[in-house]
């Protein structure tokens, strides 16, 4: 499967420009992480790709054909977990998944059994959804997205509400699934992207700030991340963004990203989180 979004601009009825002239190409197999602050345009991009929105300008192609002409084919191959969604509380887990399977045209009960096992919900299959915890509901959401022979898996904040152990399990599952399909993962958890994604898109203010391998994003941050020890009441140096503050015996050890590090800061190896913050910061400075 190949998806191309060419020069996409999306303007909401309120007049807000959610995306501005974005071009992205995705081809299976790939696991793409989308990072960006709230309101950056991540969810809008995902909705455009599932044909839930029509762009104001530009075109989206699915295997070279306009997406809107291939909506049925797209949806037959799509697994979608939105950021915010509802479930039928009155139905038990199994029945809800059977209902979703029917909507997806899947009659094979094994498919339901498989996703229940993958999402660790086998024991709760007869439990009413209304009686599940937040994390378990999220897993039901993931289970319905995984149902069937999906070629395109779009997951918007999939690990929200999951405990650390579950989060690790799921991100490994997404990584396995990406071996033969496109998995698009939008998240605020940079660690998830660093662990499994072979490509990262950084979006801010409706524009793509970075598109490439996580290592490349990190590489462009070398020399822009540093640490120094400050005391209570000290001001953050101009142009620096504090990533973390750790209380030590010598004082507060600050980790900062900056275009030009202060002379007293010692440059350190950047992480993807540093690189992401630097990328956003740099973009905002440039405007």
């Amino acid at each position: 499967m190949k998806i191309e979004a060419n020069n996409i601009t999306m303007i909401y009825p309120s007049g807000k420009k959610a995306l501005q002239n974005i071009t992205v190409k995705m081809e299976s197999p790939s696991l793409i992480g989308i990072l960006g602050p709230n309101g950056a345009g991540k969810t809008t991009l995902m909705k455009l790709i599932i044909a839930g929105l029509i762009p104001a300008k530009g075109e989206i192609l699915l295997d070279g054909e306009p997406l809107l002409k291939q909506e049925k084919r797209l949806k037959a191959a799509l697994g979608y977990l939105p950021q915010s969604f509802g479930l039928y509380d009155e139905l038990p887990v199994w029945q809800f998944l059977e209902y979703m399977a029917a909507l997806k045209g899947i009659s094979n009960k094994k498919a339901i059994k498989d996703v229940l096992e993958q999402t660790n919900l086998s024991e709760q299959r007869k439990t009413r959804i209304g009686a599940l915890s937040g994390g378990q509901r999220q897993r039901v959401g993931i289970a319905q997205a995984l149902l069937g022979n999906t070629q395109l898996l779009i997951l918007d904040e999939p690990t929200v509400g999951l405990d650390p152990e579950e989060r690790v399990k799921f991100r490994n599952l997404f990584s396995e699934m990406a071996q033969d399909k496109i998995v698009l993962l939008s998240t605020h958890i940079v660690e998830d992207v660093q662990s499994i994604c072979n490509r990262v898109l950084v979006i801010n203010d409706g524009q793509i700030m970075f598109d490439g391998e996580p290592a490349a994003l990190i590489a462009q941050t070398i020399g822009h991340v540093g640490v120094y020890v400050s005391q209570i009441g000290d001001k953050t140096p101009d142009g620096c963004q504090v990533v973390s503050k750790v209380n030590t015996a010598k004082g507060i050890q600050c980790r900062v990203v900056a275009k030009h590090l202060p002379s007293f800061a010692e440059a350190v190896e950047p992480t993807l989180e540093d690189a992401y913050l630097y990328c956003i910061d740099k973009g905002e400075d440039g405007r």
């Binding site: 949806k75 509802g86 479930l87 039928y88 909507l103």
Partner: peptide, 20 residues
């Protein structure tokens, strides 16, 4: 409102909306 929240998921399936 609750149904509309579920529709976020169901509308991403290939089911024909008219038949649905």
């Amino acid at each position: 409102k609750k149904e509309k929240q579920v529709q976020v998921i169901t509308s991403a399936t290939p089911v024909d909306p008219i038949r649905f």
